[in-house]
Simulated scan of single mutants.
Amino acid sequence: MTPIRNRRLAATAVMGALALTLAACGSDNPTGATSSSSSSSASADDSASTLSGEIVGAGASTQESAMNAWIAEFQNANSGVTISYDPVGSGGGRTQFIDGGTDWAGSDAYLTDEEVTAAEATCGGEIMELPIYISPIAIIYNLPSVSTQINMSAETIAKVFNGDITMWNDPAIAADNEGVDLPDTAITVVHRSDESGTTKNFTDYLSKAAGSAWPYEASGDWPVEGQQSAQGTSGVVQTVQGAEGTIGYADASQAGSLGTVAVGVGDEFVPYSAEAAAAVVDSSTPVSGRSEFDFAIDLKRDTTESGNYPVVLVSYVIGCVNYPADQVDLMKAWFGYIVSAEGQDVAAGAAGSAPISDTLRNEAMSAIDAISAS
């Protein structure tokens, strides 16, 4: 058997455990939108309605809201298709994909060079990394007595999360929040307990924007010992919600009613928004040395451009360029729908993400069009 055929058999086995995860999504339209037939790759046209088969993915929990909406819309338009996605986290998703257990991975961090080599061996050829979800990472906090948004410079954020600033009324925080009555309350840092692409992006921001205040390299594993931890994005949000004085980081789509930090950029403090996150992506550069269909991005975390929010994640779908013949049309249609204007609008409605640019879409479609039988 070829490696990709082994992947197909492994994915089928995993499907049995995951099929119920999104079964309800297949019969409902969570966005309230009607599938359009105008997108040639969106699989909502008459020819795509003949699609059938089962595919499975796993990975970033930040993609979960968008992924649920994508799956619901795609399955509504293609009744013969079953899709499952397990939001185990970026690290778990990449591992499952490399091990041949899934058809694609969702990840908030692009593959390392070592992971690329391993993934190519599993795929039996080239891999693709497609930016499909752009979202700010919100720095969330629970401070009921403060009704205004709190400002923090990158250095202050780093000192808070490194445990060097331990009280909410610390002079460093007060200096950026003139007139705000900050409480004499201890700060409790909450971080991800699992390997996380959100953590990788957040620590990447701190390492590039905060200087010596953050003495660690970017990592998907939280580097500071002795702090409060929680599993997954939802776990961090729930933990912050549960105790006054807490602070954490999470995909902005799940910040809810918690307070959020406006981040120092140049001479201003920028609150998170999809538009401000997308602005950073547009000014960033591709990762060097990658293959033709690998569109990983090095984000400009230390930007000083007005209106840019650099605490941002770009989430990817990671897949093979070669699939078994009976999966080629389905994988093309599925990936094509995700990157289509229609699919991006669905994600924006469900998760508040920023639609990818036409440039990113065209790059992604060059890879999707190249999918062929192994």
Rank of each mutant, 00 (worst) to 15 (best):
I165P: 03
A341K: 13
E120H: 03
I55F: 08
A364Y: 03
T285N: 10
I137L: 04
A121R: 12
L51P: 14
G352K: 01
L111Q: 13
S90A: 06
G59P: 12
A277R: 05
S193H: 02
G242A: 08
G220A: 06
G220R: 00
I4V: 15
I297N: 07
D204L: 06
T198H: 01
G343E: 08
S65H: 11
T359Q: 13
T246N: 04
G349W: 01
V314T: 11
E64W: 02
T203Y: 00
V265K: 02
Y85H: 09
E115P: 14
N308H: 15
D302C: 08
L9R: 14
F161D: 03
S207C: 03
L18I: 14
S306V: 12
T246M: 01
Q231C: 11
D86E: 12
P183R: 00
E155G: 06
S253T: 11
S366A: 09
A105D: 10
T112P: 14
S273C: 10
S196T: 06
D221T: 14
T12I: 13
K300S: 12
N177S: 03
S234Y: 04
T233A: 10
A42S: 15
L130F: 04
I371A: 07
L51N: 12
S257D: 15
A333H: 10
V328K: 05
I132V: 15
A19S: 15
E363T: 13
P3Y: 02
S65C: 11
V224G: 07
M1W: 10
S212N: 09
Q227R: 01
L182Y: 01
I140C: 04
Y316S: 10
A209P: 08
P144D: 02
A10Y: 12
G248D: 02
I356M: 05
I140L: 04
A23F: 08
A186R: 03
A218N: 08
C123G: 12
V280D: 10
S47M: 11
E275K: 10
I127F: 06
S36Y: 03
M152I: 02
A213N: 09
A274L: 09
T246S: 08
S84N: 14
A44P: 13
G53H: 08
D108I: 05
A364I: 05
A118D: 15
S284F: 02
P171M: 00
S107P: 13
V311E: 03
T117P: 12
L20P: 15
E305R: 08
G197M: 01
S39T: 12
D358L: 06
E178G: 11
T239Y: 00
Q75E: 15
F97V: 12
V237M: 04
Y141P: 08
N6L: 13
S253L: 07
V311G: 06
D358G: 14
S273H: 07
Q75K: 07
L206I: 03
V237A: 04
A172Q: 05
E244V: 14
A60Q: 10
N308S: 14
V314I: 11
T260K: 06
S253Y: 05
I83R: 04
G91E: 12
N177K: 01
A347T: 10
